[in-house]
Amino acid sequence: MININSIYNEDFKRGYEALNNLKVEDSVVANLKYFELSGLALLNRDIAAFDKYDQNITQEYYYFSNERASLQNVAEELRNKKLKSPWVAGIATAIIPGAGKFYAGKRGQGIYSFVISMFLALQVWESYRIDGIESPRFIIYGSLFSLFHAGNIWSSALTVKNYNKEYNEAVNYRIKMDLHIPIRSFFN
């Protein structure tokens, strides 16, 4: 139980220690131990450790075969998944307003940012062309455009950061459920 509580409290180090110090002689419990260690490795995003622990599971057991297959799928997904970069989103938005939101998968926000930025940029251009660089109108619209564009760059980076966080939380939830079910099945 210490392991499961540690996992849900995000104290993976304590979970590792508890499982590694667990002396087992029964092959079923030993395989369950390696299954739990493989899940902890995935929670730490250590795919090599996952593979090592998963290979130590010597037999297929009905009460955690589905969960083991699920963890193997998660490991494969993590191997192939490249998280998005907040830097790329920020730079893309700096070049083309709203492009970072598109990159983050927020197309509506990207279009909105692009339209507002273009509206403000056109106002800046028109005020410069008609009134000159020292006109209050140019200064006001130039300031608004600059503030909006800088905020848009920052917002794009944060959007990607939140996207990555939500993805990791969803994956962790799947892993935790896969680790929890065999424990309940085995000890009930």
Results as ranks from 00 to 15, higher is better:
151 G>S: 09
4 I>P: 06
56 N>W: 06
7 I>Q: 02
27 S>V: 06
159 T>F: 06
163 Y>W: 07
145 F>N: 10
78 L>E: 11
77 E>A: 07
144 L>R: 03
183 I>H: 01
154 W>L: 14
23 K>Y: 03
177 M>W: 03
145 F>R: 01
187 F>Y: 13
164 N>Y: 04
152 N>A: 10
100 G>E: 06
87 W>N: 14
160 V>G: 02
144 L>N: 04
159 T>V: 06
4 I>V: 12
94 A>G: 14
140 I>V: 15
104 A>W: 06
60 E>N: 11
143 S>I: 02
90 G>E: 15
26 D>M: 08
44 N>T: 12
112 Y>T: 08
39 G>F: 00
148 F>Y: 14
60 E>V: 14
85 S>Y: 07
60 E>M: 06
130 I>N: 08
2 I>C: 10
129 R>D: 15
92 A>I: 05
22 L>M: 11
43 L>Y: 04
166 E>Y: 06
109 Q>E: 11
29 V>L: 14
87 W>C: 03
15 G>T: 10
133 I>D: 11
181 I>G: 00
100 G>N: 09
135 S>N: 13
79 R>M: 10
36 E>S: 13
38 S>I: 13
94 A>S: 13
6 S>T: 11
79 R>I: 07
83 L>T: 11
1 M>L: 10
20 N>F: 05
24 V>A: 11
11 D>L: 07
85 S>E: 13
7 I>E: 05
88 V>W: 06
29 V>G: 00
80 N>K: 15
116 I>Y: 00
82 K>R: 12
152 N>Q: 14
58 T>D: 08
26 D>C: 06
101 K>D: 04
41 A>Q: 12
174 R>Q: 09
15 G>R: 01
102 F>W: 12
111 I>C: 05
145 F>E: 12
67 E>L: 00
183 I>S: 04
114 F>A: 15
182 P>T: 07
51 D>A: 13
20 N>W: 02
178 D>E: 12
47 I>R: 03
175 I>E: 00
40 L>A: 03
53 Y>V: 12
16 Y>N: 12
134 E>C: 01
82 K>F: 08
141 Y>H: 13
83 L>F: 12
154 W>K: 05
134 E>M: 05
95 I>D: 05
188 N>A: 08
58 T>P: 00
120 L>I: 03
163 Y>Q: 10
89 A>V: 13
5 N>L: 15
32 L>N: 03
64 F>R: 00
106 K>S: 04
24 V>Q: 08
177 M>P: 00
51 D>Y: 11
21 N>L: 05
61 Y>S: 02
177 M>L: 13
94 A>V: 09
51 D>I: 06
69 A>P: 00
150 A>Y: 08
154 W>A: 09
100 G>Q: 11
167 Y>I: 03
50 F>S: 07
